[in-house]
């Protein structure tokens, strides 16, 4: 049994510290938004979790390609780890978005392009998990998983464009916003600091969780191997 790497311990601590600082920045350093009030604070974490979600899906697609080219088991473990983490984070992003949308849009949910795309993305990766569960042979599971991770990631922009062509009310805070967007605002200096710090924190959190999950995946693979050895 291999020891938990020292760097991972350090990263755990660092993540915890960053998280505390980030929460402090969001609640005490960034000013209160004038029209939306306290509920706007959700934005700092909402965007950060959604970012981690997309980051993980991207990682999964990239390691999926690596797996198909090289066929090494570690890429499969990484792909699964990234998708598992991102599935949860993306779901949290959707929930937090709903909490914000209730007072601002006066509804928990609307079929706006981003919201709809987010739902479809969740369904794609839920299908990914079901695909993996349905296959017993580890090699085949890894191959199919890699193919589906790439297919899913490629389809997301097309889905987004197609729904965008219908219409949007979701605010775009970074970059230009549509004039029709509701609940838009422009960030002041301290808000920007808190926002980008939060993005950074969540990225580190992702790396930390990813590392843990990959370690766990490797141990699980070892267990599976040992079990096969015993039964064979």
């Amino acid at each position: 049994m291999e020891q938990k790497p020292r760097w991972l311990n350090i990263l755990d601590t660092l993540t915890a510290i960053l998280f505390v600082v980030s929460v402090f920045l969001v609640f005490f350093y960034a000013p209160m938004e004038r029209t939306m009030g306290a509920v706007q604070k959700v934005f700092y974490f909402h965007v950060a979790t959604a970012w981690v979600g997309m980051l993980g899906f991207l990682v999964a697609a990239v390691v999926g390609v690596f797996y198909l080219i090289k066929g090494e088991r570690k890429y499969d473990i990484m792909g699964l780890a990234a998708i598992e983490i991102s599935l949860i984070f993306f779901f949290i992003a959707i929930i937090m978005g709903s909490i914000w949308a209730r007072p601002i849009w006066n509804t928990w949910w609307t079929w706006d392009p981003r919201l709809t795309t987010a739902t479809i993305v969740e369904l794609i990766y839920a299908a990914y998990m079901m695909l993996r569960q349905g296959i017993d042979d580890p090699d085949r599971r890894a191959r199919f998983g890699a193919v589906y991770a790439v297919l899913g990631f490629v389809s997301v922009p097309l889905t987004f464009i197609s729904i965008r062509m219908l219409r949007t009310i979701h605010p775009v805070v970074v970059g230009n916003s549509d004039p029709g967007a509701e609940g838009s605002f422009s960030m002041t200096g301290p808000m920007k600091t808190a926002f980008f710090f939060s993005l950074f924190t969540f990225s580190v959190l992702f790396v930390d969780l990813f590392w843990h999950r990959v370690r766990m995946g490797k141990l699980a693979a070892k267990v599976e191997e040992l079990r096969l050895k015993i039964t064979a």
């Binding site: 479809i120 794609i124 299908a127 079901m130 296959i135 193919v147 097309l158």
Partner: peptide, 25 residues
């Protein structure tokens, strides 16, 4: 892919529909 899985008959629509959303729209 679906026919090679244990859950073959139920798997295809679940895998396929989220990916063909752009086509359908």
């Amino acid at each position: 892919m679906a026919v090679q899985a244990r859950t073959r008959d139920i798997l295809l629509p679940i895998l396929l529909f989220p990916l063909v959303v752009p086509v359908l729209i």
